[in-house]
């Protein structure tokens, strides 16, 4: 560190994203139970708790937990119908699971001492890739070879079409990359900012009140960002799904 012997000013905002094994020492293998696996498991339990035990009674007039579950369900349902149409409802379970996993991951990540698994490109990249591959396969199944006309612009002059083909293919592959970077980047940036301010507060003594207020403000903003990012990821999934169901619009 640059401060040398005065090592009190030692902020490591990125340390919170380190994946470490919980019950074993040494290397990470695919079966190693890490802090990431733990928080994914907690997110899973939270979802099960909300949607299995929360609405088990099935009251006509919902209680607190049940209304949360119903509001979330109706919200995503409406989003799918609005963007992808009635046909998109077939894929509602998948979109809903995506939304819940990301939402719970983001919100649980805001708890102190927790781990935000959605801040890793490895996680969001897989989620985005799954959406990308399934939407592309779906496009081919639904539209056959006609799906390729998305890349072969028949309204352009023949000489230009190969050039446009390259451009279109690149712009098609931009989607999964931006889809995953957006979520992971937002999560990582917000958490790192909070950690940096917390580091300031640690060395400023009485003056720490300023960074503490800043942390409160950033935390409030993060509450908004985590929900919006889950929403954005889901809505883009719906948009891509819609493109696969109705190409050429």
């Amino acid at each position: 560190m640059a401060t040398g012997s005065e090592s009190s000013f030692d902020i490591r905002p990125m340390d919170q994203f380190i994946i470490s094994p919980l019950f074993s020492e040494g290397d990470l293998n695919w079966y190693t139970f890490t802090n990431q696996s733990l928080w994914m498991l907690i997110a899973l339990l939270g979802i099960i708790g909300l949607f299995v035990f929360g609405i088990r009674k099935g009251d006509v007039v919902p209680g607190r937990i049940q209304s949360i579950a119903e509001v979330v369900y109706v919200f995503v349902h409406k989003m799918v119908v609005d963007i992808a149409g009635q046909e998109g409802l077939k894929y509602f379970p998948y979109i809903f699971s995506l939304f819940l996993l990301i939402l719970f991951g983001n919100v649980l990540g805001l708890l102190p001492y927790s781990f935000t698994f959605t801040s890793h490109i490895a996680v969001t990249g897989i989620l985005a890739l799954l959406v990308f591959v399934s939407v592309t396969v779906l496009g081919f199944i639904r539209n056959g070879v006609r799906f390729l006309s998305l890349f072969w612009i028949s309204s352009a002059p023949l000489a230009l079409r190969p050039v446009l083909l390259v451009i279109e293919v690149i712009s098609y592959f931009v989607r999964p990359v931006s889809h995953s970077i957006r979520l992971a980047g937002n999560m990582m940036a917000g958490h790192a900012v909070i950690k940096v301010f917390a580091g300031f507060a640690g060395v400023m003594g009485l003056g720490a009140i300023a960074p503490i207020f800043a942390i409160v403000a950033v935390y409030g903003l993060e509450m908004l960002v985590v929900v919006i990012q889950a929403y954005v990821f889901t809505i883009l999934t719906c948009v891509y799904l819609n493109d696969a169901l109705h190409p050429g619009h």
Binding site: I170, S171, F173, V174, V177, S178, I181, R182, V232, L236
Partner: peptide, 15 residues
């Protein structure tokens, strides 16, 4: 706005 910026940058990076 963020989406557009990101797409612009990612497109160039991919290229």
């Amino acid at each position: 706005g963020w989406r557009m910026i990101l797409e612009l940058v990612v497109g160039m990076l991919l290229g």
